[in-house]
């Protein structure tokens, strides 16, 4: 059992003055509605979640707007404050801290430029393989249309890496290097995102390009053309792209791949 907190025993509010917290609350609700809508319109949403779940953000915009309209109406009618007598403080007990904390995503989303996870977010190395589920779908895709994930799925369904020798690939990803990569090698990497960036996993294909490598900086988005040739990389024999051409490209519309 707890003692009475004297602070909450405030006298009745009789005036119809506007509580600044109620105004803030309305602003935060509308702000979040606009923020979620902006993410959809600007395409920034692809920096955060698997696009398969973008409908969730539409739902959020709708509900935030409804809550905002309801709260604004309550504010207009002074419904949040006057007329509740002893209960009035309870609404306001959504105190400053609550509003500030709930407004945090809005503040961070507005102040910090929206960017996908960077190459720096990789800390445990880039995976060279994926679970083989759906490899049939990847197989049926035109080889030149396959992305990093498709290729790794195709590889997962095949035991001899040299089977792909000579096959042409054309893939887009960002440059990733580790200090112990053999000279002339880098990886074209992508993050896969199943739900949201919380589960982002970096995957990549090794590329051999001794002459073309000099100007590349880690994290640059590149388009790589070349044929596979199996060789040892990280202690295992894997198909490695022998690059004919590497072009710097702009970040793709969907920075992540969706497994």
């Amino acid at each position: 059992m707890q003692a009475t907190d004297p602070v909450t025993q405030r006298p009745e509010t009789t005036s119809a003055a506007v509580n600044p917290l109620d105004v803030l609350k309305v602003l935060v609700l509308f702000g979040l509605a606009v923020y979620f809508a902006y993410n959809i319109v600007s395409g920034n949403i692809t920096n955060y979640i698997n696009i398969r779940f973008d409908w969730l953000s539409y739902v959020a915009v709708f509900i935030f707007a409804m809550l905002g309209i309801g709260s604004a109406w309550a504010l207009y009618r002074r419904d949040t404050d006057a007329g509740y007598s002893a209960d009035a403080h309870e609404v306001s007990s959504l105190g400053w801290w609550t509003i500030i904390i709930v407004a945090l995503p809005l503040v961070m989303g507005t102040l910090i430029p929206s960017r996908p996870l960077s190459v720096d977010a990789i800390s445990g190395g880039v995976q060279l393989s994926v679970a083989s589920a759906n490899s049939a779908a990847a197989f049926s895709r035109d080889p030149l249309e396959r992305n990093v994930l498709d290729w790794l799925r195709v590889f997962a369904g095949e035991t001899t890496p040299s089977r792909f020798d000579g096959e042409q690939a054309n893939i887009i990803g960002f440059v990733y290097r580790e200090p112990d990569f053999p000279t002339g090698h880098f990886m074209v990497a992508r993050f896969t995102v199943s739900c949201c960036v919380a589960d982002a996993q970096p995957i990549g294909l090794p590329v051999y390009a001794p002459e073309l490598l000099d100007d590349l900086v880690d994290g640059d988005w590149v388009e790589v053309n070349g044929a596979f040739e199996a060789a040892v990389f990280r202690d295992t024999k894997v198909p490695i792209i022998q690059a004919d051409a590497i072009t710097i490209v702009s970040q793709p519309e969907h920075p992540y791949l969706y497994p």
Binding site: L32, F36, N39, I45, N47, Y48, I49, F53, L56, S57, V59, A60, I63, P105, M108, G109, I112, P113, S114, R115, P116, L117, S118, D120, A121, C195, C196, V197, A198
Partner: peptide, 17 residues
């Protein structure tokens, strides 16, 4: 900071709805 913000907002944007 940018990566942290992306992660934070990613989880929030998916959970808030």
């Amino acid at each position: 900071i940018s990566d942290f913000s992306t992660r934070f907002l990613g989880i929030f944007i998916e959970a808030a709805p």
